[in-house]
């Protein structure tokens, strides 16, 4: 960049020598040091509230740690015991199953639907496109707690959803059914999808708009119809955007907390009487923020989630790279 190699000589040539030397020094300082000052705030805040707690969590996960009462009940180093405990903790595996169950149930239809909506919004000469775009953004502006309460109500026995299903002859479903985790999963996945499908459609649309038009033109000249154009031009070109959307979905989906908490009335974080929809984030919270004395175990659960997220993201990356080749 030119500005580092060309100091602003012209305006200073007429100044007396000492002043000029000082301003050259200042100028040097300004160019060499100030960039670091400008990016410093981010790194300071991240170091204190991001990096330190993250490694502190790792450290705590090797201890039997009582968060509320550390003075009278000092932490005891127990090595990998917290991780071993996870291996045969039925509640942990239940939470794992619920997290992945809801995640798959929510994400697969969501991405498919978002792709479809984006493709519809990407039609040239579409009328009312601002209205459609704003309409699908509205759910994302609604807070997750609000979404939880709204859908909790719509999924009641006499709620709108059962009424709508009744219209097509599907008999009332008990969406808070005893022991039936499918009903819980479906309800929670619906909330997630309502809030995020439109948002993801907008991002995929952005990716589609960035694809050069002449690619479609040459495909059309080669005789490719709309369907063929989508699979041969749009989808491969959309790969980076799709990767972005799916990784964001993984990071968010595996941390799912608010929707299932509110859906199960929000007072506890057990996710229903039989933990039908308790996710890993809720189980972590239960161990460390409800019963503070299990904070070490909660920390271990946190790190297991982090590793899962990283593995799922890498797996997803490899999968998308392969399928689109």
């Amino acid at each position: 960049m030119a500005l580092t190699t060309a100091p602003p000589q012209p305006s200073q040539t007429e100044q007396p020598a000492p002043a000029r030397r000082r301003s050259v020094l200042l100028n040097k300082f300004d160019l060499k040091v100030s960039p670091y000052l400008y990016i410093l705030p981010f790194f300071v805040v991240f170091a204190i509230f991001g990096a330190y707690p993250m490694f502190r969590t790792l450290y705590m996960s090797f201890y039997d740690w009582d968060l509320a009462n550390a003075r009278f009940d000092p932490p005891v180093f127990i090595g990998l015991d917290n991780y071993v405990r996870m291996l045969d903790d039925p509640y942990y595996w239940n939470a794992m199953r619920n997290t992945f169950g809801v995640f798959l149930l929510a994400t697969i239809p969501q991405l498919a639907l978002a792709l479809l909506i984006a493709a519809m919004l990407n039609r040239p000469f579409l009328r009312g496109k601002t209205f459609f775009r704003m309409a699908i953004l509205l759910p994302n502006a609604t807070s997750v707690t609000a979404v939880g309460i709204i859908f909790l109500t719509m999924f009641k026995d006499t709620g709108v959803i059962n009424w709508a299903l009744g219209l097509v002859g599907i008999g009332p479903i008990d969406w808070h059914g005893d022991g039936g985790f499918w009903s819980y999963w479906t309800a929670v996945a619906t909330m997630v999808d309502w809030r995020w499908t439109g948002y993801n459609a907008l991002i995929l649309l952005a990716g589609m708009l960035a694809i050069p038009r002449d690619l479609y033109e040459s495909a059309a000249i080669d005789g490719a119809g709309a369907w063929r154009q989508f699979w041969s031009v749009t989808f491969p070109m959309l790969r980076p955007t799709f990767l972005f959307v799916s990784i964001v979905s993984i990071v968010g989906g595996l941390q799912l907390f608010t929707e299932p908490v509110i859906y199960t009335y929000g007072y506890t974080v057990r996710g229903g009487d039989r933990r039908e929809v308790q996710t890993l984030a809720m189980y972590m919270y239960e161990n460390s923020m409800v019963s503070f004395n299990n904070a070490g175990y909660g920390a271990a659960i946190s790190w297991s989630m982090f590793l899962l997220i990283i593995m799922a993201s890498i797996g997803n990356f490899l999968l998308i790279r392969r399928t689109a080749r």
Partner: peptide
């Protein structure tokens, strides 16, 4: 990429 919940427990302690 770092999930917010990862630092939750120490953050509370801080």
């Amino acid at each position: 990429m770092v999930p917010t919940q990862l630092g939750l427990i120490p953050l509370w302690g801080m």
